[in-house]
Amino acid sequence: MIIGEGKPIQEILAMIADKKKILVVGCKGCVTVCSAGGQKEVEILSSTIRLAREKEDNPIEIREETLERQCDPEYLEQMRSYIDDYEAVVSLACGAGVQFTAEKYRRIPVYPGINTNFIGVTVEQGVWSERCQACGSCILHKTGGICPIARCSKSLLNGPCGGSSKGKCEIDPDVECGWQLIYDRLRELESLELFEEVVPIKDWSTGRDGGPRRIIREDLKS
């Protein structure tokens, strides 16, 4: 899923400094699961804003909503009936949700309430970690199911650099070396011969480098 985390409150307060009536909108998708932008976070953020503004003697009116998803037009439509009553939206969805909301409702500004960080997993309660960089051309079958693009700090495709030490990456003893993980896994799978193949120069054009991406499925189009 997409992992995000709340922006510092000061940053959000600065965005809405001149607003008196705002909507804080969460999303029940990924950001709910990673506790960054679900209903609970909408409530917490809204009360924090209210308190801060009351302290400044500059109260603000906030409506709290949490949509099923902000990346689907169908759910975004639900705001149509009331959005015009507000001066701004603070969206706690991922960057995609914030943008899609802004795209659908052009009259008022839509501000990001969280930072969108990565595509990752819940390692344990309260710990998330990156797994995928959406390069658009998956090679996990060659690397023991561990992505060197996302998990090696240099996205090396042909094996560990000279800085890998005791399983850790050279950049930080708290970061696992992606290539150590790949090596261990290939050994477990008795597939170390996969390592010996030179991985050819990658075509990055399926990734962000090819420009903004889109997928069109004729079979599904209405």
Binding site: G159, P160, S164, W179
Partner: peptide
Amino acid sequence: AENPFADPFEIRVPRVSK
């Protein structure tokens, strides 16, 4: 370059071969 002292040690010869 190659670093025979980096980990995993077992990969340091295959890496030269690569």
